[in-house]
Design a protein around this nucleic acid. Sequence first.
DNA 1: GCCGTTTTCGGCCCGACTGTTTTCAGTCG
Length: 553
Amino acid sequence: MPSNTEAAEIFRGIADLLDVMGERFKPEAYRRAARSLESLTEDLSAVAARGELRSIPGVGEAIEEKLREYLASGKIAYYDRLRLEVPPGVAEMLAIPGLGPKTARRFWVELGIETPDELLAALTAGRLSGVKGFGEKKVAQIRSAVEGHRAGPAGARLPIEVAYPIAQALVQGLRERAGAEQIEVAGSFRRGRETVGDLDLLVTSVDPTRAFDVFSSLPEVREVRLRGATKETVLLTNGLQVDLRVVEPAAFGAALQYFTGSKDHNVIVRSLAKERGLRVNEYGVYRGDERLAGRTEEEVYAALGLAWIPPELREARGEVDLAAQGPLPPLVSESALRGDLHVHLAPDAEAASVEPLVTSARARGLAYLGLVAEGLDDHGRPFTLPSKTQERLRKAAGPKLRLHLVREVDVPSGPTSAGREVFDWTVLRPTSRAPNPPPASVGRAWSLAVVAHVGSRDPAGAEAARAWIQFARAVGTAVEVGPGPERLDSTWARSALETGLSLALPTGVEEPTGSPTGPIALRFARRAGAGPGQVRNADPHAPVSGGRKAAAD
DNA sequence: GCCGTTTTCGGCCCGACTGTTTTCAGTCG
C-alpha cells in the first residue's frame, strides 16, 4: 500500500545516493519534495487523482512522473538503478556524524570501503594514516563517530512532550546561573513540531564564555562536542544534542528568526529580501552595510514588508505570501482558553485533595471544567466520581469556576443515550485503535460530544484517525488535540479544521504546574492554524449553555 | 530537479566550526 511517508523515504534515499555521486542541487530538490510529502494532510493518491501533484511544493515534471510511477507500481525505477550504482553501505555512512558525501565517496572510490563495518576495520588496520586530509585528530574523530553509530541509531527524534521538560530545565539553569538576559528555545521546538531532533537555545549575554561554562556544567550535560566564539554544542545524558548560541541584544530578533526556521520558510524569506535589494542573516536585515533591523522578530519581518508570522506557521505553506498582504488572522492563545472540556481526577478521587485542581484552574483563568464523573479508569475499569467528592469540588470551586459533569463513553461498545439528563456533555472515547466508528445517527444521541483518545502515530492509527474525524464531522463534535500517542497531533488537527470541525484542547489543569500537556496542545492547534473561534473551549460559555447549536451540524 | 510580476535559463542561504592547511575543504544547521 503506497503511502506519503514511504514515498518521502524513497526520495530521501535518492537524495543520499545522489549526494554520494557528487550531484550539486538534485539532492536538495528531492529532500524538499520529501519534506512536502510528509507535511501533506491528504493522501498522495487523492492528490494524484485530481491531477494536482504539481501543486505540491518542490514537485515538478520529473518528480511528478516518479510519484505516478510509485503510485502505480509501488516502486521507482530510478531509485533501483541508483542503488545498483552505489553500494547501500556507502549511503549508510552518511548517517555517521561528521561524515558527509565527499568523505563517503572518497572512502568508497579511493579505498574500496563500502560499509561502516569496513570503515572501522580500515581504521583499526591503520589504513587511513598517511591518506591526504586524514590527520591523527580526524581519524580519532571518525573512529569515535563510527563506534557511536554502530552502538545505536543516534539522533532519533524525541517527542516534544519528552523534550519539553528538558528544555525547561536548561532554560532555568541558564537563567539562574549564567546571567543571561533573553533566553529562547528556537528550532522545531519553537515551531511546535511533534518531534525534535535537537534543541537550539539562544541567549543574549555580555559574557559568552561564562554562559558556555555554566551551560556545560549543567547536570543534564554529558559532554561538550564543540565550542567556538558564539556557539557551543553539547550532548545531554539522554543523547539529545543541544546547541547554545550567544548573540548581542541588537541581533537577538534576527538570530531568533534565523534559528527558528524552518529551512524552507527561511529560504523564501531570504529570496524575498533579495528581490527587494536586502540581505538577511542571523545578525539582521541589511541594505548594503546598513543594518535595518535585528533586535526583535517583528522588526525583522517588518523590514521585509511582512507582518510577524507566528513560529508555528513557519513551514513554507504560503504564510509568507499572506504576511505580505497584512497581519495574519489571530491564532488561539493561552489566554483565549476559558475552560477544559475533559478533566480527569485520580481514580481514588474520594481521598484525593480537590484544592490543587481548583487552584490550578483559577491560575489559568478558566471559567469552567468538564469533570469526568463516569467512565473508565486507566486500567479500563468502570469508575464513578463519588458524590461526596463532587460536593467538595463544588464548594472549593465557588461561583466563579463552574463545574460540569461529564461522562466518558467507550464507542462503539459503550452505552448510548441513557443518563443524558445527568451529564452536561459526553466525551467519546474510541475503543483502542478501533477503525470502525458507529453510524453518525448513534453519535447524534448526545447533545454534545468530544472525540478524545484517538492516536495516529502509526499506519493503523492513521486509518482510525481518518475514520473518526469523518465520524466527528457527521455528528458535529469537536476532536481533542494534544501530545502523546492517545491524542491527535497537529497534522490531524489541520485535517480536522479543513473539514470544518472545531478542536478541544486539554489545558493540563489536572497535572502539576509546568507539565507540558497544555502548552503543547496549544502549539499543535496553532500549528494547524486554529483561531480562537475554532477551539470549542475558547468559548467563554461551557458548551451546554450556549453550544447546543453545535450538535445540529 | 525546481522555479520564475525583473528570468523558460541560470540561479539555488550562508555563516560557524574543525582540521589540516599556509588560504581552504568539508560538514552542519
